[in-house]
């Protein structure tokens, strides 16, 4: 059988100059374009695109609103997905996830302040992007290196047992919704 010119190797079409693009609108009304291969890294967005029946022809005319993610985080997410869109699929980590090495490019991308990182994780969780979630979690986990338990408590904002107990007591003492 001879292969028709219209049926190239799967990956070939993705590297062409005119890939299928989608538009995404963040909660603060910033508009982003993202290629098809990149958007597939987000299970939430890809399910949405599939369910909405968006195609190469109508994708740009139908921007997708994402109300839970602001423009700043969306920018980081789009950059990340475009960067990793051609990555090989990785096996799921059933044990520790320490085995992988965080690439320098991604470490730079995630060198943001803790509040931004926290918001990015929430966005990543909402958009269901496994690889970005693993990378963000690695950055946070690395903060624990060479720290004492007391230092960890401060870094991660962990209440003491006494504080936890006090919180629990006050919660049980306070009247419920019915009074």
């Amino acid at each position: 059988m001879s292969v028709e010119p219209e049926v190239p190797i799967v990956q070939v079409e993705e590297v062409r100059e005119n890939p299928v693009l989608y538009k995404i609108i963040s909660s603060d009304n910033h508009v982003f374009t993202i290629s098809e291969h990149a958007v597939k890294l987000s299970k939430t967005l890809w399910d949405l695109i599939t369910n909405l029946g968006l195609t190469a022809e109508n994708a740009l005319d139908n921007p997708i609103p994402v109300e839970n993610v602001n423009g700043k985080n969306m920018e980081t997410i789009v950059q990340f997905c475009e960067r990793h869109k051609y990555d090989e699929e990785e096996p799921e980590y059933t044990n520790y996830i320490r085995e992988f090495v965080l690439p320098e490019w991604d470490r730079q991308l995630l060198s943001i302040d803790n509040e931004e990182l926290f918001q990015l994780i929430l966005a990543t969780n909402y958009l269901d992007i496994q690889k970005l979630m693993d990378y963000c979690c690695r950055v946070i986990g690395d903060m624990a290196k060479d720290k004492t338990p007391e230092e960890l408590r401060i870094i991660y904002g962990i209440p003491t047992d006494a504080e936890d107990d006090a919180l629990e007591r006050s919660a049980s003492d306070s009247p419920g919704p019915s009074g």
Binding site: D113, N114, F118, L122, M133, I140, I155, Y156, G157
Partner: peptide, 12 residues
């Protein structure tokens, strides 16, 4: 800056 891990979603 602290990073409040206990406020993260459980999977994270």
């Amino acid at each position: 800056q602290l990073f409040p891990i206990l406020k993260l979603p459980f999977v994270a």
